[in-house]
Write a protein that binds this DNA or RNA. Structure first.
Length: 678
DNA sequence: TGGTATT
């Protein structure tokens, strides 16, 4: 027993089988109902509950080789003991829990194991993510008994097997922050599957993951495998891991392989049981872990932005021929990677761990969060998405927000996605802002983005198989591409040695699967707009390098939509010089808030007017008040001004949502803007 | 010696 919380938050919602789209909607309804039920809560509390772990990881990690990006969980066919030909597997079946020891019915596969969760993701967030696909019977995040830290995995048990399958198809391979989660059927719990992980060293440096699996597969069913690679060079370190399904299989592999010399190698390998991670020195320093939970491997926080940017560029190029020309943007200044942070000049709740907020405009009323996940996911780590909805109709008001971890990826995403047709609409504008600044601006605009839910339905998965093993019943390490493509491309190595090239391939595969999933959800894939009724105003709003404050604005095409050209004019103001100190940064942020507030006012009102059918007077109304509040915050006076702006924003937001006041809850409940923003 | 895989 690791963590006590039982997961089930009774929120019985009958989800239509169609899954994605409508599920999101109903879940949204439920949550806002909860909020308004408590009166004040509509604004404050839900926002705090769901989101706040999202915005921690400023570092990319996306370039770190992410070996096992794609997973196949859809082959759950045959039995578990295929390749091993042993008898001990009685153990396995005997321990198969509860349900059906005495009949021939297959095990209900409702229980999922979710691996590689972001460190900061809470149980509630996990639940909110998975409940989009159906009623969740229980959800549990596994935590360290002593420190309480997430161990990075958990379980989600659905009521219905079909919902579990939907969740796998939609969420397996999803990038969340700096991780790519894996979602697969949980094997029945039993003692026999514990301690089945092996550490292998002395591997020839040219051995691939596929080679490694071939070496070990004669001894049992492999659940996961990995070859560790140098972060910089990407070359194999000659050590790796093999997790078998059953402990006895691991035992057998040790006996048979330890000390042997693989073919084409000169050195014998060492095979032994892997350390339990909790027995590492990490656990000896729980305090340190508390202080810096994200960066225990210092130096990895921001190592690969360039690589990630390159990969994203490749992905972007796949759907946007001109994307490459924005690659210069990669080198632009980003507060998240700035030396201001690394020098400790700027810390705490100002800009660190915020992410980059992308404003997406001209969404159709029926737009769901999953669309945003699918659109932006291929470009990099998406922390959160939000569709702004009319409270009455629950329809999208015509715009939404996406927060991405890495500036470069965010910029590439908007460069690429602007001007694409989504449904019968053209995504007219996206702007990237520091999420903190965006939060303030939005708050001033009466848009308090609470109730954020992670309705990620990103049917991402690269089609890279880890294995040429027979597909066992729980052979969840195999890769499946999204949505029912049952077969794998076997023998593709995707070990941690994956180079930039393979990462790019993965990105492109993501794009493909994104496109495909769009189709499958009756949402047309993004297409380049062929008419010029669309405006393309991709604006990187940031502390852009002065000299190179390049032509983001120039990306805007001329447009017949007047609102768009207004947007363009406004948004070009959002490019700032690199701040030289914290004061300047604060100044810029405040200024940006004001600008952005006005910008949002324009956009939101035009969104309401031209776009959706929703009434949404709230936007207009609060928009009006924005100006005044914005102008009151002229004194770029640092923290005090910031706090004030936030308080006002909260008040407005609550009013806008028609809930009772209680703006006083403001700062206390909001340890940082990023936390309440999404 | 992992991107903490069995509650």
């Amino acid at each position: 027993m690791v963590e006590g919380q039982t997961a089930v938050q009774q929120q019985p919602q009958q989800q239509p089988p169609a899954g994605a789209a409508s599920n999101t909607a109903s879940s949204s309804t439920a949550m806002s109902a909860t909020g308004t039920g408590t009166g004040v809560g509509s604004t404050g509390s839900p926002g705090n509950v769901t989101p706040n772990t999202q915005l921690q990881t400023a570092g990319s990690g996306s370039g770190s080789g992410s070996p096992t990006t794609g997973w196949n969980t859809s082959d759950q066919a045959s039995n578990a003991n295929n390749s091993t030909a042993n008898n001990n597997n009685n153990n396995n079946t005997a321990n198969n829990n509860n349900n059906n020891n005495n009949n021939n019915e297959p095990d209900p596969k409702t229980n999922l194991i979710v691996n590689y969760l972001p460190q900061t993701m809470s149980q509630d967030e996990i639940r909110s993510l998975f409940v989009s696909f159906g009623e969740v019977e229980s959800c549990k995040l596994i935590r360290d008994k002593v420190t309480g830290q997430s161990l990075g995995y958990g379980f989600v048990n659905y009521v219905k097997q079909e919902d579990a399958e939907k969740a796998i198809n939609a969420l397996n391979g999803l990038r969340l922050q700096n991780k790519t989660i894996k979602v697969s059927i949980a094997r029945p719990s039993s003692e026999s599957i514990k301690g089945a992980n092996l550490y292998v060293s002395g591997l020839p440096k040219n051995m691939t993951q596929s080679d490694l699996e071939s070496l070990f597969s004669p001894y049992g069913k492999i659940i996961t495998s990995r070859i560790l690679c140098d972060n910089i060079t990407g070359l194999s370190k000659g050590v790796g891991f093999i997790r078998f399904d059953q402990r006895f299989e691991a035992d057998r592999a040790i006996k048979e392989l330890n000390g042997t010399t693989p073919k084409n190698s000169t050195e014998p390998i060492t095979v032994k049981f892997a350390n339990n991670p909790s027995s590492n020195k990490n656990s000896m320093q729980p305090l340190a872990a508390y202080i810096a939970p994200q960066n225990t491997r210092g130096g990895r926080a921001f190592p690969t932005n360039a690589a990630a940017g390159a990969a994203a560029a490749a992905a972007a190029a796949a759907i946007h021929p001109n994307a490459g020309r924005y690659s210069s943007v990669i080198s632009r200044y980003s507060p998240l990677t700035s030396d201001l942070i690394t020098n400790g000049m700027i810390q705490g709740n100002t800009i660190a761990s915020s992410g980059w907020c992308i404003f997406v405009y001209n969404l159709a009323p029926e737009t769901e969060e999953n669309v945003l996940w699918q659109l932006f996911g291929p470009f990099g780590a998406v922390q959160s998405v939000k569709v702004i909805r009319d409270l009455q109709s629950n329809k999208c008001k015509g715009f939404g927000f996406v927060t991405m971890t890495n500036y470069e990826e965010a910029v590439l995403a908007i460069q690429s996605l602007n001007g694409y047709t989504l449904g019968n609409r053209v995504l007219q504008l996206a702007a990237v802002v520091n999420a903190n600044a965006a939060a303030a601006a939005l708050a001033a605009n009466g848009l308090v983005l609470h109730n954020h839910r992670q309705n990620n339905q990103n049917n991402i998965s690269s089609s890279i198989s880890t294995s040429n093993n027979p597909h066992g019943k729980y052979a969840n390490h195999n890769n499946s591409s999204s949505n029912n493509r049952q077969h794998n491309t076997n023998n593709n190595s995707h070990s941690s040695s994956s180079s930039n090239t393979s990462k790019q391939q993965q990105q492109q595969q993501r794009l493909q699967s994104t496109t495909q999933s769009n189709k499958q959800q009756s949402m047309p894939p993004p297409k380049r707009s062929s008419n010029n009724t669309s405006s393309v105003a991709a604006v990187a709003v940031s502390n852009g390098d002065a000299g190179s404050s390049t032509g983001n604005g120039a990306a805007a095409s001329s447009s017949s939509a007047s609102s768009s050209s207004n947007i363009l004019k406004t948004s070009t103001k959002f490019i700032y010089n690199k701040p030289q100190n914290q004061f300047e940064l604060l100044q810029q942020q405040l200024q940006l808030q004001q600008e952005f507030a006005q910008f949002l006012t324009n956009v939101a009102s035009s969104a309401v007017g031209s776009g959706s059918s929703s009434a949404a007077n709230t936007s207009a109304g609060t928009g009006g008040s924005v100006g005044s509040h914005g102008s009151q915050r002229n004194g770029l006076g640092g923290g005090g001004a910031l706090g004030m702006g936030m308080g006002m924003g909260l008040g407005l937001g609550m009013a806008a949502n028609g809930s009772s006041s209680g703006a006083g809850s403001g700062n206390k409940n909001m340890p940082s803007w990023s936390n309440w923003f999404f």
